[in-house]
Amino acid sequence: MKRLRFAFAVLVALLVIAPVFAAGSQEAAASKPMVLKLGHIQSDQDVWHKAALFFAEKVAEKTNGTVKVEVYPNSTIGNDRDMAEGLQLGSVDFALIAGVLGNFEPSLQILELPYLIENEQHLRNVIYGPIGQELFDRLLKSSNIRGLTYWERGPRQLTSNYPINTIADVKGLKLRLPEIPAMLAYWKAAGANPTPMAWGEVYSALQQKVIDGQENPIPYIHSARLEEVQSYIAMTSHKYEYVTISMSNLTYEKLNAEQQKAVYEAASESAEYQNKLVADLTDSLFKDLQAKGMKVTYPDRAPFIAVAQKVNEEFASKIDADLYKRIVAAK
């Protein structure tokens, strides 16, 4: 009988304290932040990385620590296409991606046409106006990828192992390009030999002479240390660039309303931060590239633009001629 009374007492005690332990466990789980991944293809020295860390800091601050963003540079969690597919699956939560999203929402390909955007103000009119939001709406509907905001990157310039003084010098140039159909179509028409390649492979491909050149904004040429493997910069300014902070909609729907609002606010503030970084640093980085030995050429852009006028309208007509006209008119 004593043993029965002892066992009964233990059982009662366990029943009493079990809810206490359960409550404590639930409270600990509730206090643990949701950890989300943000990936990008640039180095940890790049302005993208600095701005991504700023975004992560703002998300933590605005969600009172309930959401933590971990940043993975250098294609650590995949190249652009890998990350875009990860956003669709929910295995990647945020990514900095630009033109490769056009493979998931075709209308975004129009923004990738060289010499479509005339200057920085024209770009801002497009990406921060109704057209930019429309493109994000289309992306969400077609791919379940949620665009949060756009960052500016400056114009793309051409680097090579020999000087580019005229469009004739581009003929046969083995030119690395991202996997973006609009850009491939243009450079093929200009006479180059376009070579799609993931960004993480570019440095070694240039070093081993697999390709002759590439094209990117000045800050990205600098952060990738391309002056070590390229001798010339041709100031073609053929494309005023952007990149998106995009988010998996599957992840977004796991957040509560306050957290969702915080993510959008953090993205908006990160755009202001990143855009200022690019504007402030581009001139000094350009001078540093020259100080390290890169020579600069200024080819006549008129023949390059003439090729674009032939290619762009035809390319856009296969996707959305009205959108193309509205982007042109937004300058």
Rank of each mutant, 00 (worst) to 15 (best):
M1K: 01
K2H: 04
R3E: 02
L4Y: 06
L4W: 10
V10F: 13
A13E: 05
L15S: 07
P19D: 07
A22I: 10
G24Q: 11
Q26W: 14
S31D: 15
K32H: 14
M34R: 13
K37R: 14
L38Q: 09
L38D: 03
G39D: 13
I41Q: 10
Q42F: 13
D46H: 14
V47S: 10
A51F: 14
L53Y: 08
A56Y: 15
K58Q: 13
V59G: 06
A60P: 05
T63W: 12
N64Y: 10
T66M: 09
V67F: 10
V69P: 09
E70N: 09
Y72V: 06
P73A: 04
T76W: 09
T76G: 01
G78N: 05
N79T: 11
R81W: 15
R81Y: 11
D82L: 07
E85V: 05
L87E: 14
S91A: 04
D93R: 07
D93W: 12
A95V: 13
I97M: 13
A98F: 15
F104Q: 09
E105P: 06
P106T: 11
L111I: 04
L111F: 11
L113R: 09
P114Y: 13
P114C: 08
I117D: 13
R124N: 08
I127D: 06
Y128K: 08
G129Y: 04
E134V: 05
D137T: 02
S142Q: 15
N144A: 09
W151P: 04
R156S: 13
Y162E: 15
I164A: 05
N165K: 00
D169I: 00
D169H: 00
G172H: 00
L173G: 10
L175H: 13
P178M: 09
A190R: 02
P194H: 03
P194I: 12
P194T: 03
P196G: 03
M197F: 10
M197D: 05
A198E: 15
W199S: 04
E201Y: 05
S204G: 04
P219D: 13
S223I: 05
A224E: 07
R225Y: 11
E227I: 00
E228Y: 06
Y232P: 02
S237A: 14
S237V: 09
H238K: 04
K239P: 01
E241H: 12
Y242D: 12
V243S: 11
S246D: 15
L250V: 09
L250Q: 14
T251P: 02
K254E: 15
K254L: 15
L255G: 01
E258L: 08
Q260T: 07
A262F: 01
S270K: 03
E272V: 08
Y273C: 03
N275T: 03
L277R: 11
V278S: 04
A279V: 11
D280R: 03
L281Q: 10
D288M: 01
D288I: 03
A291V: 01
A291T: 03
K292V: 07
Y298K: 03
D300P: 05
R301V: 00
A302Q: 12
A308E: 08
K310S: 04
V311T: 06
A316V: 00
S317T: 05
D322F: 06
Y324A: 01
I327Y: 02
V328I: 12
A329W: 10
